[in-house]
Amino acid sequence: MNKLVVPVFGVLAAVGIAVAVWLVFMQAPLQYGFHPDGALNGSSLFYNQKIFYFHVAHAFMLFAAVFVSGVCSIAFLKTRKPKWDDVAMAATEVAVAFGAVVLVTGSVWAKAAWDVWWNWEPRLTMSLLLWLVLLGYVLVRRFAGPSADRIAAGMAIFGMVGVPFIYKMVGQDSHPAAGREGVVATLGPGMRAAFWISVAAFLCWFVALVVARVQSARAERELRELRERGLDLGVLS
């Protein structure tokens, strides 16, 4: 991969995030609504709704990462080329960080909207379950020794296929009062631009991090080869 990819995407992400922050805090209207009788709507969050733009953008990246990791793992198992494995691992590790953001901001959102830190809101539950799969993946990579790449690939594939089941399970289990149906679709005009720009900005950020992580995985591989050469030459013991 080109050396320029990380800086380019990093700069794009920085600019994008700056624009998104400006849009979210300076331009986007506060979110509130009224009941037909004139009373304030219970889902009016005013300033707190600004969490949404970044929370949901991160959640999108979490799902994208599960997908990328699953597809790259399939490619790895088919071709056995380590580059696919590197991408799958990088995407998953970055997704663990993004997932942590999703869970923390989601928890704060729950506190703001429903006054509890955690209420098993369907989408948040789904993020948590996916995040657990990703954490398991990272643990496997770390502790499964030489065959970690295969086992982790299997886990990524099974995890990706399991996403629709988690979705159905959580959806059936949901508490109707807590559901926020189609929030993204019902965003007001001033909010939509801010939202999609922050999604794009965090996509760039995600790509930059994944590519950086892939490069570090490459360096690890190189180091391993050098060590083997060193052992052959008798430099290392």
């Binding site: 991160h58 923390v104 901001t105 959102w109 703001a112």
Partner: peptide, 9 residues
């Protein structure tokens, strides 16, 4: 809440 979540992020 916004401050907390942004700080965490």
């Amino acid at each position: 809440h916004v401050v907390i979540s942004y700080a965490a992020m």
